[in-house]
Write a protein that binds this DNA or RNA. Structure first.
Lengths: 249, 249
DNA sequence: GCAACTTTGTGCGTGCCTTCACAAGCGACT
DNA sequence: AGTCGCTTGTGAAGGCACGCACAAAGTTGC
């Protein structure tokens, strides 16, 4: 949904800042989390094969992904987890805290505000906004919900770098404009709308209804295929590597 | 994240069931929603350029996407919206209702259960599950929360075709196994875990922390680029598709 | 110190997706 | 009826990503 940039400039490459494919960045974040879990279990090194097994990624692809952030592996041994984690965090910008603003504290927004997976991972939700007078003023997780009008002021005060939009569809574009006007350059959009913004603003979209429709398509495909009596196996997920983490409850 | 299957069989192609690229399916769902909005505004036809503007997609790509489901456009005019919507719904399997089961009625799960975007779009949430005794038995939107143990029985009774997992990470794999054992073949996973399942099961993952980390990467990249004093203007997004639709709210 | 084994890093072929550009088709106007 | 303008549908080219397979590099054992 987000567009693949023809990223990178030469000067940028000279710094530690290489042109990393968008698809790889998404996986790097995944590696980082799994490395965290491995570290908790007491591991000090991982091989690309192990980590690939846990993350469901092809080992070669994984190594190539890691090579984008520099060579931190030891041949014959694997990767030292702590060093790799540090480097990943640096690359993903987690060495600086990212203040997150959440706009729209309705059904979904309320859940996002309370989601522990954010604050625990370096993304403290720093500001909450809504238009509903019944919501403005209440506390969620210790944060006061402010009125949307206060976005410019508060975002500036608290150094917000990432905005999340969880409003109803029709309100989303207006909120987006407000955020962009306040200097926010990265937005995560949950509203079912395609946002328009200047090209320097990075927008990612999470569309739950679309996700379900994609699955519904597969259900339908399967049903039709069965009616046909055609073979048509699914083979979606490739990886049967049950290797390390059984991880039952 | 989900792997592109080497979809399609010849018999399947003979029926209305063509091999549609995974990436296209995702966009088809998007087109469908936007068409719905256009129809509400009273439009009867759209050109590929208009629809492309609204959805932020390249017009040629859009036409190719639509060509996968058959040619329903009229040259010189555009697409008749009602016919196109019908065909899209058929392709995406929305002509049959999809019963959805949601496992994990915690923070996020509760929000998902109450999200009107699902039921309103042909995805009635038909069953809710959790392990927490405080939650089992309560009603959400008129649905009783059942214990996870009841998954096999209830999924069979209610003909569940799609499962959503919104449990904490460690519980997710167990729930996944239960769902798969109950005949569910399509799963939407919100838990921060890579699920292992047989290849015939289609799994999609929505990972909120990863989404934020991807954005954080862009924040970091931007900061580093600025420190460099390098030129490196925005050009992250390609996305200049402001072409036709100003489409302000 | 040498040999055998392990694991990383990467060059390269392959296939999918995107995008351009144009011919074919349809309607409107004269 | 004929012409003109507009829009679809698609062939072909380019780019990106994936994954194989191998050389380079390090470790362990003798």
């Amino acid at each position: 949904m987000t567009k693949p940039p023809q990223a990178g400039s030469e000067d940028a490459a000279a710094a530690g800042l290489r042109a990393i494919p968008e698809a790889s960045v998404a996986r790097l974040a995944l590696y980082l989390r799994m490395l965290g879990e491995l570290a908790e279990q007491g591991a000090e090194t991982v091989s690309s094969d192990e980590l690939a097994g846990v993350t469901g990624v092809n080992p070669a692809k994984l190594r190539k992904d890691l090579s984008y952030i520099g060579s931190y592996g030891i041949r014959g041994v694997g990767y030292e987890i702590s060093a790799l984690v540090r480097q990943l965090e640096r690359t993903l910008g987690l060495d600086h805290l990212q203040a997150v603003a959440l706009v729209g504290v309705g059904n979904l927004g309320h859940a996002l505000a309370g989601y522990s997976g954010f604050g625990g991972r370096g993304f403290p939700v720093t500001a909450l906004f809504d238009v509903d007078p019944d919501l403005v003023g209440i506390h969620i997780n210790g944060i006061i919900v402010e009125h949307v009008q206060a976005i410019p002021q508060i975002c500036a005060e608290r150094g917000v770098t990432i905005g999340m939009i969880a409003t109803p569809g029709p309100a989303a574009q207006g909120v987006c404009d407000l955020l962009v006007g306040s200097g926010v350059r990265c937005i995560l959009n949950f509203a079912p709308v395609v946002l328009q913004a200047p090209p320097e603003v990075e927008i990612r979209k999470v569309d739950l209804a679309v996700e379900l429709q994609i699955l519904a398509f597969h259900v339908a495909r399967r049903r039709l295929a069965q009616q046909d009596g055609a073979v048509l196996d699914g083979q979606v997920n490739g990886h049967a590597t049950n290797g390390s983490g059984g991880m039952l409850t």
